[in-house]
C-alpha cells in the first residue's frame, strides 16, 4: 500500500486521510515523534496557503482541529519523556478587566499547531500573573489581547511591568480595537492585525 503523505493530507484538510495515515504509520512502528514532525510540516504548509490568500481563518481552525485530534492519538504512543521540540515560547492572555477570549484562543490554537509552546494565562489576567508567567516560562514573546478600549490602560501597565521584569522579551498586542497607535500608546513592540500575524512574528523572534 502506498504511504500516505501526511503533509499533503493535512494541508488539504483531508481529515479521514490524516487519521488513516497516522494509524498506518503507528502500525508500522514509525516513532510517534516523527509522525508529529510530519504533521507540523503540514501545518507549516497550511500557514503558507494562508499567507498566499488561499486559506483563511476557517481553514486555519479546521487544520488545527485535525492536528489536535491526531496529536492526542500520538501522545498515547510517545516514549515516556519524549517531547516534540518547540520553536519558542509565548505567554498569552487577555488583559485585566476584559473577559473576551475568542481571538486569544484562536491565536493559541494556531501557534500551538505551528510548533510553539503557548502558556495561556487566560482572560481578565492581573498584571502580576503575566509577570509570574514570564519569570517561570522565560518566553521570547508575550501576547496581550483586549476587545474593550477600557482595557488599554491595563494593557499599558501590563506591558510596563513585563518589560521591567524582562526587557528582552518582545510584546505583541491584538484584538478588535487595537492598531499601531494603540501599540505605541502601550509601548508594545508589535501589533497583530490577524491571528496568523502572531505566527509570523514568533518566527522572526525565535530565529533571532
Amino acid at each position: 500500500m502506498e504511504k500516505i503523505n501526511l503533509v499533503d493530507a493535512l494541508s488539504e484538510l483531508d481529515e479521514d486521510l490524516v487519521v488513516k495515515g497516522v494509524k498506518s504509520q503507528l502500525a508500522e512502528n514509525v516513532p510517534a515523534i516523527e509522525i508529529l514532525g510530519q504533521l507540523q510540516k503540514g501545518m507549516e504548509k497550511v500557514g503558507k496557503f494562508y499567507e498566499e490568500g488561499e486559506y483563511y481563518l476557517s481553514e486555519l481552525i479546521m487544520s488545527a482541529d485535525i492536528f489536535s485530534s491526531v496529536a492526542d492519538l500520538l501522545k498515547a504512543n510517545m516514549a515516556q519523556g519524549a517531547e516534540l521540540e518547540t520553536h519558542g515560547t509565548i505567554v498569552l492572555g487577555t488583559v485585566k478587566d476584559d473577559i473576551h477570549d475568542i481571538g486569544k484562543n484562536i491565536v493559541a490554537t494556531i501557534l500551538g499547531c505551528n510548533g510553539y509552546k503557548v502558556v495561556d494565562v487566560g482572560v481578565d489576567v492581573p498584571i502580576e500573573k503575566f509577570v509570574e508567567a514570564v519569570k517561570e516560562h522565560k518566553p521570547q514573546v508575550v501576547g496581550m489581547c483586549c476587545l474593550l478600549t477600557t482595557a488599554f490602560d491595563a494593557m499599558k501597565d501590563t506591558v510596563a511591568a513585563v518589560k521591567a521584569e524582562n526587557s528582552a522579551v518582545k510584546i505583541l498586542i491584538g484584538g478588535g480595537p487595537c492598531d499601531n497607535n494603540v501599540a505605541k500608546y502601550c509601548s508594545a513592540d508589535y501589533y497583530c492585525k490577524t491571528a496568523y500575524d502572531a505566527v509570523t512574528l514568533m518566527e522572526g523572534q525565535c530565529k533571532a
Binding site: 484538510l13 481529515e15 476557517s58 481552525i61 479546521m62 482541529d65 484562543n105 484562536i106 490554537t109
Partner: peptide
C-alpha cells in the same frame, strides 16, 4: 456554538 466550534461545523 462559539466561533471555533462553528467553523469546524462548517467543514465537518
Amino acid at each position: 456554538r462559539t466561533m471555533v466550534k462553528f467553523m469546524r461545523d462548517l467543514f465537518r
